[in-house]
Design a protein around this nucleic acid. Structure first.
Lengths: 226, 226
DNA sequence: ACAGAAGTCGAGGCGTCCCTCCAGTTCGTT
DNA sequence: AACGAACTGGAGGGACGCCTCGACTTCTGT
């Protein structure tokens, strides 16, 4: 608590060298398996691929979500950084489009991240915090583009959830035989978001809590007990 | 083969009365369970809800797909009829919009149909045939609207698959807390399809076989062995 | 009312995945 | 080199879902 400021909870003495090796192998295996199978992949498959017994996995990551956090903090930061980068761009429409494209690209080849982006896990503090932060930035990206008249005024950041959900399923369907199909969908969606000649929408936007609840609900399936 | 022309295969003598009652109960239960849990719902849950033992379910419907066919021929016909109705409408854009709305409405409160619409099952002849037919009509709906300049010329019927997939996940996410959210997504997509707002798309359309393969792949998860 | 065909039940074998537990091994320190 | 703490393997119990099978029950035609 005094000298090392990283991870102030858990004084966590360094792992034994063999243990560290195993942990690394597990993280590597989980990265691959989650990417191809999604967040509810069998943990035993991950252990097997890491060349380690199941007990060792559970020792290092008592819950599935611990493993998920370990894997995805990085990619979640990348997402966040894309949002920041977008906000630093000059053209607000370019920024908006850039941001969505980046996000979809991150989702495109990783079913695990795909799941993660469309869910919320109230008990995974670290992920939760980042996602909240990202949501703030997303809102600013949308609002800025609206102020400049590039994005239609009747959408809200909640509508981005629709894009994320849509993208999830589309890339699940197409990743194998037609891995760039999502770009076409995104192109259509971008046209939908443009301000010029927008027709009134038949339905009010979701409220933020509704989106949150919906994402929690999706997360409920992958045992996320914290 | 001579007198009764209905279901020429399977001379199928009528069921015993109690057996018919059980079969009906199973169909009813399956309708409910598939609607709320999707096509991969546990069959034992269906049997339980029908007040019948699992063996009886298997006697009536040796494979899951037999049950699925029994449940969904009706809804599939409704889908087909909506397509026909659209083709009989005067205004091609209205027809296009009407058709998509109808389809999404059918999907909206039925996770089973939701699954079915986004998958193909090569071994389920009856479903397969109807879906092929629907696909033909969809193509004509799109092309007519394009000929009249209502729908942008760079889309194809294959792009409707994107709408279906998108809708699948969106209604899965929102059905509980925000059950009309899909209308907003559909509104956006319709704007995306309008001819007068189109920017060039970044990606060519999928080819028909690619869509087919993608849908077969999605179907592979729910044991569809015929 | 009876025989036999038709239908039903549900236990049980199989497979998958979850997670726990502890005897045995390996590491790092002295 | 030797000790104790840290770590590991993997058997095993529990939950769930699939599907089969044969003893039992119920219907229906005569």
């Amino acid at each position: 608590m005094s000298s090392d400021e990283i991870t102030p909870t858990k004084a966590a003495r360094p792992l034994r060298r063999d243990a560290q090796r195993n942990r690394d192998a597990l993280v590597g295996a989980a990265r691959m398996v989650f990417a191809s199978e999604g967040l509810d992949a069998p943990l035993e498959q991950i252990a097997r691929q890491a060349g380690v017994a199941i007990g060792t996995l559970y020792r290092n990551f008592p819950t599935r979500m611990d493993l998920v956090e370990a894997i995805f903090v990085g990619k979640l930061s990348t997402w966040l950084e894309s949002a920041e980068q977008a906000l630093s761009m000059d053209d607000a429409w370019e920024a908006f489009a850039f941001y969505l494209e980046r996000l979809c690209e991150l989702q495109a080849h990783d079913r695990g991240f795909n799941d993660l982006a469309s869910m919320r896990f109230p008990h995974a503090a670290c992920i939760e915090r980042t996602q909240g932060h990202i949501n703030e930035l997303s809102r600013r990206i949308v609002e800025r583009a609206q102020r400049e008249g590039a994005v239609r005024p009747d959408v809200t950041v909640e509508d981005l959830a629709l894009v994320i959900w849509a993208h999830t399923r589309i890339s699940e369907a197409t990743s194998e035989f037609c891995p760039t199909a999502w770009r076409r969908h995104l192109g259509l969606m971008l046209d939908a978001f443009r301000a010029d000649r927008a027709r009134p929408l038949p339905e009010p936007p979701m409220r933020p809590e509704e989106v949150y609840q919906a994402m929690v609900r999706l997360g409920g399936s992958s045992a996320c007990t914290g």
